[in-house]
Write a protein that binds this DNA or RNA. Sequence first.
DNA 1: GTTGACTCTCAACCTAGGTTTAGGGTTTAT
DNA 2: ATAAACCCTAAACCTAGGTTGAGAGTCAAC
Lengths: 137, 137
Amino acid sequence: MEKKLIQIGELAKISKVPIATLRYYEKRNLLKPTKVKDSGYRLYSQEAEKTIGFVKHAQELGFSLEEIKQLINLRAPSVGRCKRVRNRAKSKLEDVREKIRLLSQIEGTLEKLIKDCEKSKTSSNCPIIEGMEDIND
Amino acid sequence: MEKKLIQIGELAKISKVPIATLRYYEKRNLLKPTKVKDSGYRLYSQEAEKTIGFVKHAQELGFSLEEIKQLINLRAPSVGRCKRVRNRAKSKLEDVREKIRLLSQIEGTLEKLIKDCEKSKTSSNCPIIEGMEDIND
DNA sequence: GTTGACTCTCAACCTAGGTTTAGGGTTTAT
DNA sequence: ATAAACCCTAAACCTAGGTTGAGAGTCAAC
């Protein structure tokens, strides 16, 4: 049971996120320090780095901090009572799959674009959007 | 050859985006009207709706307007000269694949979470982030 | 017991991506 | 030729997601 707690500055360094941002995440209820000293100093477990990594990645995938908070809170909700959690998880799963679907469409279009450019170097017809027509609901 | 041009208001209605946003996209070089009357009135082809749909979807996928502009401009660059375009497309393709990889990871975690909740309804161990540990580079 | 590197709160500020407002032309139908 | 419904520009304003700064406390080392 390694339980070494670290200060905010070290967490900031290892997770490559400014200290102010960590405090901001706390205000937004995304990341709570494991412990707070009487002095007010925040102490975090190493785990915190994973949460931060998750937040950063999820942002790149177009989730808002609010959505990310909900994703995080799917874990450790009111113990037991999984039903509500399951429904929220299912709904999020839909969102995620839709994103994957859209990205796959873009992936396909980019692949085609690259191949077309490769064979006919003079091609001025690289229809990136046209290839994405069927993206829309 | 249907070439019916439409006014900004109609485009706004069919694409479900406020007029002001369309003008804003124009300023950001994401969407140019097909034609501009002497009065200053913008006229768009029906195609414009697809571009807007693409922009909106790409935003949900975490692309900035700047990145989206680049994606759009992969089409119709300096005619011929595909080499630079191809390289940019390849780079974007990497980005897209990385996003898909991350989303698939989240998808898997959510699936597992749902399954676990389904079998043991008392389970208080729904590790959404733990399951995403290996997401990080 | 003071110096230096840390930490705290609170408030002001910043950028992206819009939205709203003010003041004024244009088009169509009557 | 005038009303109703469009459209224009320019500029101020707004929200999310931070970032920066001021002023002050804390902690380890000397």
